[in-house]
């Protein structure tokens, strides 16, 4: 290693020529990164080298070169390159023999074509469930959040209810709640729920589950609005409810759009869980197709459908976030 960099100064060497302990570590890591054919040590070495460089220049003031740091960075980069190349070679090598089977299982063209209309029909049901549940969740989540932070003695039962609800629902796996609601409620024959279809039960169950998550998102947004806003509104004579309605919630909603959309993406994907209710939605139709044709291709197709819907939503989240940042930082 000393030969590689050739600048090892003993304890008597000038300070700028002494190898910084961090640089030594970076060099070691970068060599490691080349040898066991992995990328990660290379990346770690690069990070350590950069950090060491920054620290040295920060602590010693003047620019002194520090060749060993630059060498370490270069070696780290080479380590990353070799690691990546090896990884790709390894993947190609192992996949050459198995690639035929992979296509058979996941991407068989005739099954792709054959299953698409059926899967799409089922997926359309997921989309409907999603959109309706979404709208209901927005309202239900806000109601729960308002309950959760209801003030005073009068609000105590509301707070208690909302806290218990959110704790329990968030503590349960979504699929359990869906089974309990979707399969259990029809058996109880409650007046209102007696005539629900499984489609409606699916929406109800997802609303109950995601209402709890979204309530917490709302709450964090509401609590994130600085208390001085409440002070200003209350001092003008606005009541607690008016302050919430006109001052706090509008500001909270603006800042929770990104985490809210995150939960929407979760909800979109979890519409697949309602398959346990026997609803003929995407997942079940894909599974039927698969078992008739000994393949998983229909599920791949369904996965494609999901991604096509969720990715635009993720991009929308980014766009809204950026626009919001632009607006709040002023023009």
């Amino acid at each position: 290693m000393n030969q590689i960099i050739g600048v090892e100064g003993g304890p008597t060497g000038p300070p700028s020529m002494r190898i910084h302990p961090r640089a030594r570590l970076a060099l070691g890591l970068s060599v490691l990164g080349c040898v066991p054919l992995l990328v990660l040590p290379g990346i770690a070495a690069f990070a350590v080298a950069s950090d060491a460089e920054r620290r040295i220049w920060a602590s010693e003031g003047a620019y002194t070169g520090h060749d060993q740091i630059r060498t370490a960075r270069r070696l780290a980069r080479i380590g990353i390159g070799i690691g990546l190349a090896t990884l790709v070679a390894f993947l190609i090598f192992t996949q050459r023999h198995g690639i035929g089977t992979v296509r058979e299982v996941f991407f068989k063209p005739e099954f792709l074509r054959g299953s698409f209309p059926k899967v799409l029909k089922g997926f359309w049901l997921n989309v409907q469930i999603f959109f309706i549940a979404e709208a209901l969740v927005l309202v239900w989540g806000l109601v729960l959040a308002i309950f959760r932070i209801a003030p005073g003695r009068l609000g105590a039962p509301l707070r208690w209810f909302a806290t218990a609800y959110i704790d329990i629902v968030r503590g349960l796996p979504a699929i359990l709640t869906i089974v309990l609601i979707g399969l259990g409620l029809p058996l109880v024959e409650l007046p209102l729920f007696k005539d629900f279809t499984d489609f409606q039960f699916a929406i109800l169950a997802l609303t109950i589950v995601y209402g709890a998550y979204v309530a917490e998102v709302y709450r964090s947004g509401i609590e994130g609005v600085h208390w001085s806003q409440t002070a200003a509104a209350r001092s003008l004579g606005l009541s607690y409810g008016q302050t919430m309605q006109h001052v706090i919630v509008p500001q909270a909603v603006r800042r929770i759009v990104p985490p809210l959309l995150n939960d929407w993406i979760g909800l979109q994907k979890d519409t697949a869980l309602v398959n346990v209710l026997g609803t003929l939605e995407g997942f079940n139709l894909a599974r039927n197709y698969n078992s008739n044709h000994s393949t998983l291709t229909a599920t791949t197709v369904l996965g494609f459908c999901y991604v096509v819907v969720t990715i635009p939503l993720a991009r929308l989240t980014d766009t809204l976030l950026k626009r919001d940042q632009r607006r709040t930082t002023g023009g």
Partner: peptide, 28 residues
């Protein structure tokens, strides 16, 4: 009938100047 003005203004950032001034008369 007791107004207070704060050190840090505490205007409502999501409302325009006019909406800031008219909110209380309208709602209260």
């Amino acid at each position: 009938y007791v107004g207070i003005v704060f050190q840090s203004f505490n205007l409502f950032p999501h409302k325009t100047v006019l909406e800031n001034v008219t909110l209380a008369p309208r709602k209260v």
